[in-house]
Write a protein that binds this DNA or RNA. Structure first.
Lengths: 238, 238
DNA sequence: TGAAATTCTCGTACGATGTACGAGAATAGA
DNA sequence: TCTATTCTCGTACATCGTACGAGAATTTCA
């Protein structure tokens, strides 16, 4: 499924990427498949993070030469887009909207959060690679259906979906950083010591008090639900 | 202001970074300054984006050899942290909290948005480099003072500030992407054509309708204010 | 049945990046 | 003046994305 797809500007051309028919019935048959390459890249990212996804490592994983990858994706940025849409295939929604659009929208966001926690590289990849593929569009279609009862116009519905997604990505990014910090106790302790030192300098009384009276520790689940409710319950139709 | 600062784990050690006294009164005197290096890096990022900030280019800008930079910052990640805190110096707040903490918190968020629009690389840098320096902590101190009337505990106040910051960063990221798209008309047109093609395939009726009935175009300013209000007005003290 | 056209494979090579190393220059205290 | 300390920076290396082009596989056409 190769092609040269000349593109004048920078970035990824969605038409070249997603609307390409599978025509070539001549010439040497492909030894690999786009699917296998994407799957290998996703596996790498899941296991070792986005930085581990190099063309060389992906090629080694599928047993191909490095440059063979370029027959299946014109460049790495495209490969990242393909990865994002690939995992978005897990976001399949079976239930039709219930009619309670706020509840449905919260379900959408919870699905997204679980999805991003399963693929921790997603928030970072999403922030730079935003060419929606078929799986992403299927999920968008569902979100728009959920928002139908609001009677809002198209631009508003799209904006709400984009903002919810951005919110979830931001939240999960933060959540993952916290979790990583607690898995590196040395670093977390160093940060606590640093903040304590700052709080003790007398010029940060509010910080000092906040650190000395922390209150009950917050769980990511309930905090997420709380912020999400605030955001969604505040949405008004019209 | 150099040092070797051995750090066992990965990442940046906040104590080594921000709590270092200026002791060395022996040996060759520095030819440059941390300030000048950071300023040059920020200038580069403002003008050409984060990718333009390479050690070589920063060094050239300051008139130093590449490796001289490493006397002022142990590695590039540290330099990015320094850049973030450097520009956060612009976030100085003079007015004390008014007592209307919701209004004050909205002002905080609007300050952050203006700040990030002035330094479009900030959201990306923030998502990976989160070791708060003195300027960041000063702003945090102000935010905590703003939240005092809520009577919330420390962890909740810190969480609210983190979430507001994440929300603003997410919003501005999106806003910048939109603006960049409208500055690359070819790409925007290609994306529109692509979405129109998808909408015409019959399997995306909601998307088709959303695109055909877009409604009044949304301005970033008012959309931001609207989402922010939803988020903040929904916060309850208790 | 060739010959030509097409398509995929992948070794080699190039420019860019972050930074380790260590020799040399400058400064301070003895 | 000697020695310890601190900063400067040329060289070198591993790693990255990917351009190039020769060779292998397969189809189409004469």
């Amino acid at each position: 499924m190769p092609s040269d797809g000349k593109s004048g500007a920078q970035g990824v051309d969605p038409e070249q990427l997603w609307l390409r028919p599978a025509e070539p019935r001549r010439g040497r048959r492909p030894s690999f498949s786009r699917e296998a390459i994407i799957a290998a890249a996703v596996e790498l990212a899941d296991a070792e993070g986005l930085d581990a996804v190099t063309m060389r490592r992906v090629a080694a994983e599928v047993g191909a030469g490095v440059m063979s990858l370029y027959s299946y994706a014109p460049d790495k940025e495209t490969l990242l887009n393909l990865m994002v849409d690939h995992v978005s295939g897990e976001l399949t929604v079976t239930d039709p909207p219930s009619g309670d659009w706020r509840a449905d929208l919260k379900t959408v966001a919870h699905l997204q959060r679980a999805h991003m926690l399963r693929h921790p590289w997603l928030p970072a990849a999403l922030s730079t690679h935003r060419v929606p593929g078929p799986n992403t569009l299927a999920f968008l279609e569902h979100a728009l259906a959920v928002l139908r009862p609001t009677g809002l116009d198209g631009a508003s519905k799209l904006e709400i979906f984009a903002q919810i997604t951005a919110f979830v990505a931001g939240y999960v990014t933060h959540e993952i950083a916290q979790a990583a910090a607690s898995r590196a106790p040395d670093r977390a302790a160093a940060e606590r010591r640093y903040l304590a030192a700052v709080a003790a300098d007398g010029r940060h009384p509010e910080l000092a008090e906040a650190l000395s009276a922390p209150g009950r520790p917050l769980t990511p689940d309930s905090t997420f639900a709380r912020f999400l409710s605030r955001l969604i319950d505040g949405l008004d139709t019209g």
